[in-house]
Nucleic acid binder design. Structure first.
Lengths: 343, 343
DNA sequence: TCGTAGGATGTGACCGGTCACATGACCGCG
DNA sequence: CGCGGTCATGTGACCGGTCACATCCTACGA
């Protein structure tokens, strides 16, 4: 794998043809005779020629590159989404370049480096409403949002059907006979927190239960906020029978707090989360959760982005992905009323 | 943020100067009079000009881009390493582009797309010995390995001091009075598994204990393999007093198996891992582990890569990063012999 | 008064591909 | 037999920057 800069013209000279003919061979044009093609291919192999992607991008005016930007790379939910997007992009002949921007400032800088400088043809934005970062997005560029509904501007987007997911979780708890169901939300600035709240309320309403504001706590997605929620409820003497945490991390925090408070799990407290993080089955008790298929969301998002780029007519779509219940050990029948079903 | 393709020459025309002068302003050359600079800057702002990164790369012959390739993006250890590398690269004026290659074939394709086509100036390879992927690396290109020792070819590398980390873990267990210490390794093709085995044996030797082959099991980094290890030991009636799992996931698997076997943790079994994954404190009992600073490893690796690129004389360095013990609840004094210290 | 140094600016080629178009050979058909 | 059509190939410009070098102007010392 020689590294010297062998160019198209070097190959042309070596093969005794014009640079254009080499270009045609490179691009599998059918306007080349088999003999010439063979000769050129031989020259390419001999010289170890590899086309220069930068020059090609320059000449073609397109980079065949997609970008993906998320608040960080370490969060499992983002990472697995990116993983899916990367595969799909590759499958469609694009290269996916992923970066992270912890704050708005970095976000703006990256947008400038990627979009304004024309390094990329489209962009996948994960969690655009994590802060005010969405305000830095140029309007006339192909974007797809992942994990959020598009707002005013209206980019395409792909997300979990958060309302349905929350309904599923809540219904599961209701089905077990629980009536006092606590809710721990994510940051309310994010769509998914809003939507999961809506789903929770819908399920409650369907069971004829009025949501109790004392049973709702706002968390920040981290385990510690779930932990804190239960500790606080408990201190106030108003601990729920069951808790729906809007993500697994917070659910795990609840589990820990319950253990430290000496509760018998799941007998005295049922806990359900959302996501199905990799080690969910290894907590005590194994976590019941509503699974979302991040890889599928990523694939969908990448596919949507590609079609947005390639199709002249701008579509405005919001794709919702289904959630599935994964029952493990952290939820159980409500005590004392074995068959008290809701609704 | 206008998206039209305003070029350098458009700006030049608008400002009534030559294209070169605009280029000089762009690059903060001091060879421009303040008045001219002001005029050009005004034109830039008016037209919404943004330099085209592709064209610049082309003309300069360098892309100011680094690439990072890992087996996947979802593994926390990789992701946090990349996160650190990304920050450092940015700080040094490079853009870090990260990709993942699950298998050798994809790896080779990506190398081709990134390296041979001159899109990137250097590359960070995470876990180069995950399979035979390292064989696809061109020798004459700036590489830095992360999480592995360089072999024959000898690229630069940065990794945890695995030997010391394993010694630390083993010494911790020895210090608690344990003598029968089980070891669960990662895949033996990887350096870190080898090195962690060496550290374990060193600590044992220093305590005058001969390693017992029956107490060593090979795992695959996944929790299930840790789970399986304890189940098997137990079935054979040779369960150890304490287990050193070469990573946290496997340690968590051991924890779960122990619980299912009805063991009282940590009284009947001490477990220690390596990594300090995010939710380590939320398992039951909270996991004692040897922490490695992935972000720091990533930063170091990026820094080393940049200096390799920028310095003409090729250095061959292998940087080792320190590990620290994080004591939580999964390890405890050996039963019956409260002060039986080793060595 | 002139030569010259050095700052400010302009000129044209070049990076390595692709594009649009030109050319020449060969073919079939009226 | 001449002409249009198709195929294989070549020519030169072009993408949007940067580089090396040329040029012009001014100030300063001899």
């Amino acid at each position: 794998m020689p590294r010297s800069s062998v160019t198209l013209r070097d190959v042309a000279r070596h093969a005794g043809v014009s640079h254009q003919t080499v270009s045609r061979v490179n691009n599998n044009s059918d306007r080349v005779s088999p003999e010439t093609r063979a000769r050129v291919e031989e020259a390419i192999a001999e010289l170890g020629y590899r086309p220069n992607a930068i020059a090609r991008s320059m000449a073609r005016g397109r980079s065949a590159t997609l970008a993906c930007i998320s608040p960080n790379l370490t969060d499992y939910t983002f990472a697995s989404l990116i993983d899916g997007a990367e595969r799909e992009a590759r499958r469609r002949g694009y290269f996916l370049l992923s970066t992270s921007a912890p704050d708005e400032e970095t976000f703006a800088a990256i947008i400038d480096q990627l979009v304004s400088s024309r390094r990329t043809e489209g962009m996948l934005v994960i969690n655009p409403y994590a802060d005010r970062r969405h305000e830095f997005l140029p309007l006339t560029f192909p974007f797809v949002f992942a994990g959020a509904r598009p707002r005013a501007e209206g980019a395409n987007s792909v997300a979990l059907d958060d309302v349905a997911a929350a309904r599923l979780a809540t219904q599961h708890l209701l089905g077990l006979g629980h009536r006092r169901i606590g809710l721990i939300t994510g940051p309310m600035a994010e769509d998914c927190s809003q939507d999961r709240l809506a789903g929770y309320e819908q399920a409650l309403a369907a069971a004829g239960i009025a949501p109790d504001p004392d049973l709702m706590v706002h968390g920040d997605w981290h385990a510690s906020s779930g932990y804190q929620a239960l500790v606080t409820w408990s201190a106030q003497g108003r601990a729920p029978q069951a808790v729906f945490a809007q993500n697994d991390q917070m659910a795990v925090g609840v589990l820990r707090a319950a253990r430290e408070l000496g509760l018998d799990l799941p007998a005295q407290l049922s806990v359900i989360g959302v996501d199905d993080i990799p080690l969910a089955a290894y907590f005590t008790p194994p976590l019941t959760t509503v699974r979302q298929d991040f890889a599928a969301i990523g694939r969908q998002a990448a596919a949507l982005l590609v079609s947005t780029i390639e199709q002249p007519t701008p579509t405005r779509r919001h794709v919702l992905m289904p959630a599935t219940l994964v029952e493990r050990g952290s939820t159980a029948q409500a005590r004392g009323r074995p068959e008290a079903a809701a609704a």
